[in-house]
């Protein structure tokens, strides 16, 4: 049981960890590309722009978190 828990814990930490927003964004982007863009020439641009938006968002989410922590003095 310990090993099963450890196995799932590893994958949880690996895929989600302290950045659930990244995993959620990638799932949404790939879902959107799969559904809306199928067979169209917009698939590639949507995917690339989505990835750029994700790392921009992930960066600023941390900036906001840090700024809130600094304001609350923690």
């Amino acid at each position: 049981m310990k090993y099963v828990v450890g196995f799932f814990r590893f994958w949880y930490d690996f895929l989600i960890g302290d950045t659930p927003e990244i995993t959620a964004a990638i799932v949404v982007i790939l879902g959107v590309v799969a559904i809306l863009g199928k067979g169209t020439r917009y698939q590639a641009p949507i995917l690339v722009v989505g990835v750029i938006a994700t790392f921009t968002m992930a960066f600023f989410v941390e900036v906001v978190k840090k700024s809130r922590r600094a304001k609350s003095g923690k």
Partner: peptide
Amino acid sequence: GALLLIFGLQWLRKAMLRYAGL
């Protein structure tokens, strides 16, 4: 591809925060 995206974005986020001095 999905795994690499998640994994790579986690690495890149940390690297960006270090470059920005955060």
